[in-house]
């Protein structure tokens, strides 16, 4: 049948006494570009963090079943019943992760930050000693060129603007040769122009490399412009999963409640441009 890149089944997560994900199951096929929407606190970030094994699921399910929370990424178990796979670090190297706050190492140069993308693939000792080969440097440089940040390679990451840092973070994921990119609110801290730029780059990677992209978004306009499929979370469960164009405003106000108007019309009032209008160099 279909080639699933991500399979989540019966995922439950509790922080302290507050359960944030309830029996969540989700399948994502290779090459999809999926928007993950929902109001703040609906569990978007928590779900994405589970997919890369940055957060561990509850050992037991919602109804105290014996097993819960299987997450397969590219056919391998990444975590199961709250236990991370033994190979989780190797598996993470195939998953690019883009954070809302970029999470670059501020005191390292842009180039060094992008070279970190090789760590999962090269021998441990070589990575630890920062011994990167010429071809690895060239590959990092190519990733930087692709996101339009090549001329900044010697700058300290902390001196860049938010939009530039996010592009470097994407270059790091490209250097990983990631087959899946998980982007957790990648544009929530950016100005409209940088936001569009970052979304264009992600869409381009999805279109040309067939990389699966899951991007959590706060503004539905971006989902409509860039993602054929949308998964909407509400109170830790899936409230909608289907084609983005079938997501009507009534459905949206159900998902977001009182927050809806702000999300449908972005505060800057700029209508978001359609997807493949701009090809990224």
């Amino acid at each position: 049948m279909q080639d699933y890149v991500i399979r989540v089944s019966e995922l439950n997560k509790t922080f302290g006494s507050k359960q944030v994900l309830f029996d969540l199951s989700l399948d994502i096929a290779r090459g999809e570009m999926v928007a993950l929407i929902g109001s703040s606190g609906s569990g978007k970030s928590t779900l994405l963090r589970h997919l890369s094994g940055l957060t561990r699921a509850d050992a037991r399910g919602h109804r105290q079943r014996d097993e819960s929370g299987h997450i397969h990424v590219m056919g391998d178990v990444i975590q199961q019943s709250g236990r991370l796979s033994r190979n989780v670090r190797r598996q993470r190297s195939r998953i690019g992760y883009v954070f809302q706050q970029f999470n670059l190492v501020g005191r390292l140069s842009v180039m060094e930050n992008v070279l970190l993308g090789h760590l999962g693939r090269i021998p441990r000792w070589r990575g630890a000693c920062r011994l990167f080969s010429a071809s690895e440097r060239n590959e990092a440089m190519a990733s930087l060129r692709r996101v339009g940040m090549a001329e900044y390679s010697d700058r300290r990451a902390s001196t860049l603007s938010g939009g530039q840092q996010q592009r470097v973070a994407i270059a790091r994921a490209l250097t990983q040769r990631a087959e899946v990119i998980l982007a957790d609110e990648p544009i929530a801290s950016l100005d409209p122009e940088s936001a569009k730029n970052v979304m264009d780059i992600l869409a381009n990677i999805n279109a040309t490399d067939k990389t699966t992209v899951i991007v959590s978004l706060h503004q539905i306009d971006y989902a409509r412009a860039y993602c054929p499929r949308t998964v909407a979370l509400k109170k830790g469960g899936i409230h909608f999963d289907g084609a983005t164009h079938s997501l009507c405003d009534t459905r949206l106000s159900q998902i977001y409640g009182a927050e809806a108007p702000e999300i449908v019309t972005p505060p800057h009032g700029n209508p978001v441009v359609t997807v493949h209008q701009m090809a990224v160099a």
Binding site: S52, L54, R89, R90, Q91, R92, S93, R94, I95, G96, Y97, F99, Q101, F102, N103, L104, V105, G106, R107, L108, E112, L116, G117, L119, G120, R121, R124, G127, A128, R130, A169, R172, Q176
Partner: peptide, 27 residues
């Protein structure tokens, strides 16, 4: 903790997380 998590997400080992994520911050 953000940069350390950024390094972790690339598939780095625990020692590499310290070398690239922690040491530059505390230097």
């Amino acid at each position: 903790p953000g940069p350390v998590e950024g390094v972790r997400a690339t598939g780095a080992s625990a020692l590499q997380e310290i070398i690239f994520g922690v040491i530059p911050q505390v230097m």
